[in-house]
Design a protein around this nucleic acid. Structure first.
Lengths: 246, 246
DNA sequence: TAATTTTCTTGATTTAAATTAAGTTTTTTT
DNA sequence: AAAAAAACTTAATTTAAATCAAGAAAATTA
């Protein structure tokens, strides 16, 4: 195993092995085949503020975030950007599956350690291991669904509804905590930080507060009106009496 | 092979076989294996104006459009809708890959004939035939990329730029013809028919006209400023002197 | 811990597209 | 071929969020 051209120790190998084996992309894979594959892993470090173009020519790879935070963005001529995804620990980003003409940009919000495999390695493993092929299919299908859901939120919802939707996701998937800085969430929701801030003021009037990134609710069900069914399916109260989808 | 419960003739079977064998999802597949699989095909007819919810419980299937036109949409409580995709002849739509809680709606714009396979059949073929697994991966990867591109267009571009972008796509991929009614294209671009109409007025001032759905240009390169790189890669003049991406 | 940078908030103003409204053209059905 | 429905266009008005501006709070760095 190599780190920037340097052979890594067995200790590091097993550290990454344990980490990667818990990633959905590698679930249910035969232990020995997985060990052999993960042996091919490479590591790259990026720093806060760095911007890298993930064109599929240079980056015909599949990345798993070991640690850190970055956003995948697209920019127009005027410097306006949209955030396609926010990636952090355990996120998988696979530019090898995009067209070589699709140039997506990674903007690193925190120092980030990426583990990666090359396209030929992934392709070979896909051919050899049917479970891995199924995992790749699952990963891409989830990406499709998440993009469809975002499209809906971005186009159909008001500023207040967008923030409400993000908060109910945070409540369900992240234990009542906004996982990222507000300006990053605002960009992901296709709005300006000022509008995000104003939406929070409106929500506060309904008893939905954010205190130091923690969501504080006067009424535990107040956020449910902003919930979508796919997100709701992970909620403890899904389709109980208090659920909006009941 | 069955059509609404009725056994079909060999003549119909071979008609669909020829059609399906040209679909990207079935490319490069061993002839006999493909014949055996396509034998499982089922057919369903939908009519203009019909609306069907493609929830993944009822529709754990993979559809290929044999003929017709429909839009995949999502609607909110107020009846506002977004168009996720427009599907016509040869399009593949695969609700079996979505969450069972994701309910996408198919609105049929024309009478439509859908060919389909059930999830268990697709899964079995994916396990048996590695090339088919690769084709499913390609199909999903293309869906991801197309959704990312739409997200960018919908969020970053003005009404005029959106229409220009759609027209340059039509120029390159559809021989200077708008393939669908304007209100459908407007909905796909996340705008109202009125705004679409006004954008056309603006473009006309730049020498870009639409006459009976045909794009007529004073200057052949006038649309190039609206082109994205992925679309441009299919253009005859890609990266020549006159290309915006040169 | 102080200094500096970045993030966040609030208010006034602008703006691009939606809405409302009404008429025209095209397509579909009878 | 006539009638009806759907699609399209143009104009006036409204609206939600962006922009502009300035200051407060929080996080980083020195």
């Amino acid at each position: 195993m190599q780190l920037g051209g340097v052979i890594m120790t067995t200790k590091q190998t097993s550290k990454y092995h344990l980490f990667l084996s818990k990633i959905p992309l590698f679930k249910n894979i035969n232990e020995q085949e997985l060990i052999d594959f993960i042996n091919l892993v490479k590591v790259k470090q990026y720093y806060r503020g760095e911007m890298v173009t993930f064109d599929s020519k240079e980056h015909a790879k599949c990345y798993v975030v070991y640690d850190g935070l970055f956003k995948l963005t697209r920019m127009d001529e005027k410097g306006e950007e949209i955030v396609i995804t926010i990636a952090d620990k355990r996120s998988t980003v696979s530019p090898m599956h995009f067209s070589k003409h699709y140039e997506i940009c990674a903007e690193f919000v925190k120092n980030t350690t990426l583990l990666y495999f090359n396209k030929d390695e992934i392709d070979a493993f896909t051919a050899k291991n049917h479970q891995f092929a199924m995992n790749v299919i699952d990963f891409l299908a989830k990406s499709v669904q998440s993009l469809m859901l975002s499209a809906e939120v971005l186009q159909l919802k008001t500023a207040k509804e967008k923030v409400g939707w993000y908060m109910v996701q945070s409540k369900i998937n992240n234990n009542f905590k906004l996982p990222y800085p507000k300006n990053l969430i605002a960009a992901y929701l296709g709005m300006k930080p000022e509008s995000f801030s104003r939406a929070l003021v409106q929500l506060k009037k309904d008893g939905i507060k954010v205190e130091d990134k923690v969501i504080v609710l006067d009424d535990i069900n107040e956020l449910c009106q902003y919930c979508d069914k796919v997100t709701g399916a992970n909620c403890r109260s899904f389709k109980t009496l208090s659920c909006a989808h009941y």
